[in-house]
């Protein structure tokens, strides 16, 4: 039995928005793989919950007429893994979603929850950052779009107004067309793991395949929230896509990341890993992008 003060269930987005206005203190629960555990731990014990798990309209992956990929916020990790659209256009997101916890966690956990909880170690968060994703929120005033980078306000805090729920994650055509990516999760075991550090890299090479036309690098657990390595990205865009650049990236990301000491890993070890992961993820993303052209 969970220590829950009251449970309000929404089956439509409008219902959820009204419930949010009626019960401003209530916590939103999607799949619950985060909220229910926090209730067990006592951190969210005795609170009112608004369950949005029954809102089927925000579940599933689709493509809009302008080529934007829409991932409904309640889409589970397992459905992201198996989605043909994801596989075709942003395969690395499916790979990252496939590394979350274990199979049963991937069946219940939602991509919306993975971003709304504001956690830096979330496997899909750094990958969505690398895809320049846009967060869609619905509230009493209507729909609002927020670039994912500004959606994160701080550790465990996201830009969700008191009357809003997240309804979708959008990835625009220009953000994915021609790109290839790779995500590396660093954990202490190969499943049932929260990332000690994570790195997601997307590249788009020049038409001749020799130079970097676009580069996006994102990290998890390299700062209190998932971050982009903007300095490194601008420094190496236009440069040759080779081993020397990979070494350069390994070096320059150290100016972008700000990991901390914790009992899970030291700052120094995380810095070392960020550097090594950026190098490896970059090289693999380049290899995939070249392969795609063949």
């Amino acid at each position: 039995m969970y220590d829950i003060k009251a449970l309000y269930e929404a089956t439509t987005v409008d219902e959820a928005v009204s419930l949010r206005q009626e019960h401003p203190e209530a916590v939103i629960i999607a799949g619950g793989s985060d909220v229910l555990i926090k209730i067990r731990e006592g951190k969210l014990a005795g609170r009112e919950l608004i369950s949005i798990y029954g809102i089927d309209s925000i579940r599933g992956v689709s493509m809009e007429h302008d080529g934007t990929l829409r991932i409904g916020s309640l889409t589970s990790f397992s459905h992201i893994v198996s989605s043909p659209l994801i596989r075709e256009h942003i395969a690395v997101l499916g790979e990252a979603a496939g590394m979350v916890g274990g199979p049963q966690i991937r069946a219940i956990g939602t991509i919306g929850g993975n971003t709304c909880n504001g956690v830096t170690s979330a496997d899909t968060a750094s990958t969505l950052l690398a895809w320049d994703a846009v967060i869609e929120l619905a509230g009493a005033e209507g729909v609002r779009h927020v670039p994912i980078e500004s959606f994160y306000l701080g550790a465990g805090r996201a830009d969700i107004h008191s009357d809003e729920i997240q309804t979708g994650i959008l990835i625009r055509r220009e953000a994915y067309e021609g790109f290839s990516g790779h995500y590396i999760k660093y954990g202490m075991r190969n499943a049932m793991e929260i990332a000690t550090a994570g790195c997601s890299v997307n590249v788009k090479l020049s038409p001749d395949g020799n130079n970097i036309e676009r580069l996006r690098i994102a990290f998890g657990v390299a700062a209190p929230v998932p971050i982009r390595a903007h300095k490194t990205e601008s420094q190496w865009t236009g440069k040759p896509a080779d081993d020397e650049t990979a070494e350069g990236i390994a070096c320059s990301v150290l100016d972008d990341v700000k990991p901390r000491d914790s009992w899970r890993a030291s700052r120094d070890m995380r810095l070392h890993l960020c550097s090594e992961m950026a190098k490896r993820a970059f090289l693999e993303a380049v290899r995939r992008n070249k392969e795609r052209r063949v």
């Binding site: 070494e247 350069g248 390994a250 070096c251 150290l254 120094d268 810095l271 070392h272 550097s275």
Partner: peptide, 10 residues
């Protein structure tokens, strides 16, 4: 391995 400081000197 050489850690982050050495990496910066590459």
């Amino acid at each position: 391995i050489h850690g982050r400081e050495a990496a910066k000197n590459v």
